[in-house]
Amino acid sequence: MSIHPASRRAPVMKDVARMAGVSYQTVSRVLNQHPNVSAGARERVEAAIAELGYRPNPAARSLVTRRSQTIGVLASELAQYGPARTLLGLEQAARDVGYFVSIATLRTVTPQAVRDAVDHFGDQGVDGLVVVVPHPGLLEELDRVAPAFPVVAATSDPERLLAGAGVDQRLGARLAVQHLIGLGHTSIGHLAGPFDWYDAAERVAGWRDALAGAGLAADLLVEGDWTAARGYEVGRELAASRAVTAVLVGNDQMALGLLRGVQEAGLRVPEDISVVGFDDQPEAAYFFPPLTTVRQDFEELGRRCIGALLAALDADAQQAPGVVEPRLVVRSTTGRPVAS
């Protein structure tokens, strides 16, 4: 006999097991993302959950698993697009596997602030912690604090990827520069993010790698601050100097300002200068001209981080590779250089 959502009582795991024709333990394994479940059984359980409208009871689950079903997220620089979207991806990925997220943000990364945050998460009894790490100081402080729960990092620092996940920023920069080289550009500058950010440093390295691989000089490297205002300022300078025919910009916001700066000064995009951004913000397709940029999959980054944390909590859990590959989205701001 089928049990439907219209029943008076809320469905429980035994109802799901009965409808799916599996054991209670199999339902538990599916809910906890355990790999040792056949595809057919998993599909039947998920179908029964959907039909019944079953929702796991966090309190009951915590008694069985001795876990709080809560993950801490420690972040900073959330005013910037990348960290903010990473946080959203983490929260969605955690909810998809039945976890709640507790968030703490740091205005400044100091030893005391990091210790206070770790103590806060310890008092909440979180099962583990994901750190959204823009620059080195935060992880270094966490190493000194040595939390009593597993910690994984959302970072592009190559040395930390084994204990977390990150977008391959170096590959993203190489894809952008190789695209420009393929169009015939030989003088390609880079307006980078702040040099003390992991992502910015990796993009600089990718820019250098691609130029070196083509036998080209890395002559124009400018430090930015992620803002459109800085992009505008550098755009005006590039228009005056005509030092390059193409530029890789460290994020879409700076690219927006740079586009205005060069076009106000009379340059045509892409005929006089080609521009590539980084992130593929939703607005990038509506810049003038629409922006060629490097897309980061922040939702997948969130899933990889949560998978890494679950693997740290459960030795039987399967963990996807920690590196998320970006891809180049070609629009209208790149083209072949026009001889002056």
Rank of each mutant, 00 (worst) to 15 (best):
E237P: 04
D168H: 07
L267H: 10
T86Q: 13
A146P: 00
R18P: 01
V294Y: 01
V329S: 14
E51K: 14
C305D: 14
S102E: 04
L78R: 00
M254Y: 04
S38I: 11
T334M: 09
L220Y: 15
D116K: 08
D225W: 04
G164A: 03
W197Y: 12
A60N: 04
G72W: 08
V323R: 12
Y81A: 10
R107V: 15
A212Q: 11
E237A: 08
M254S: 13
T334R: 07
H135P: 03
T333A: 02
P136C: 03
L87C: 02
H120E: 15
G250W: 01
P147F: 06
R85K: 13
L211S: 06
F298H: 01
V152F: 02
V109N: 13
G235H: 14
A218E: 08
G335W: 03
A153D: 09
A205F: 07
A148H: 10
A210W: 12
L106C: 05
L310F: 08
M19W: 04
P35H: 12
G302A: 09
T26M: 00
N57L: 02
A217E: 13
G277S: 10
P56W: 13
E271R: 09
V222H: 05
H179S: 07
P282Y: 12
L162W: 09
M19K: 09
G193H: 08
N32A: 03
R336I: 01
P337C: 05
E237Y: 05
V73I: 08
I71Y: 00
D316E: 15
V247E: 02
F287K: 12
D252E: 02
I103P: 00
V324P: 04
P321K: 07
A205E: 10
A163G: 10
M19N: 03
V118K: 11
A229I: 03
A79P: 03
V109W: 12
S23C: 10
V132Y: 14
A317F: 14
L88G: 11
Q112F: 04
I3P: 00
V249M: 09
A240I: 02
R260C: 04
D225M: 02
E159W: 11
I71N: 00
G231V: 08
Y24Q: 13
Q319T: 14
M13E: 05
S102H: 07
